[in-house]
Amino acid sequence: MKSITKQKDFEAVKEILEPFDRIFIFGCGTCTTMTHTGGVEEVAEMCGKLQELGKLVTGSTVVPTACDEVTEEIMKQHGQAIENATAILVMSCALGVQKIASYIEKPVIPAVDTLFIGVEDTPGTFKEACDQCGQCIIGETAGICPITACHKGLVNGPCGGTSNGKCEVDKERDCAFTLIYNRLKIQGRLDLMKKYHEPKNYHVEPRPKVIKVS
């Protein structure tokens, strides 16, 4: 499982950093390293671009896993460089950005957009697998989640836009219900295609979602 990100346009980063002249940059050694959006190379490249803009980069580091507790310790090690900065630019997914933002009061600014939580489908290709809806039905849909695999998140079968097993939104993308049908057929469970699913509860755990594990 990885948090899949894409880099923001540099123009957007430039605009939001406009009021700030001294920047500390965080990268992440886990998800954004793998997607080449915030690893060692990308952080170095960002340093260069900001310096070209005339900004002072007070320091940079690529933490092992930005959303982990260890990040706080690493921030302490870089205490002076962070103190010298007027803003923190973070090249991790939003989980890391928020983790870092929770430790300091300085403006913390994301340099990437977080797209989805994905699993590796084929080498280098990640697909969204779970929307964390709190009502898992994949036991009845042959292990394929229609909430994420169907563009409309339908649960009761395909819409009229499916064609040759593909989705109306993009002919390169599979129709979830063709995949589900094919696999249920192999499993000898096609009767499940006809099972009616009630309207979903969109508030199994209402937002803001917080769970305390004892």
């Binding site: 395909p158 009229g160 064609s163 009616y196």
Partner: peptide
Amino acid sequence: TPEANPIEPQLAKFEKKIE
């Protein structure tokens, strides 16, 4: 959609609608 390809998932939905 009677000409849907594949037709089987479409018919399963059709039957659900009638149900």
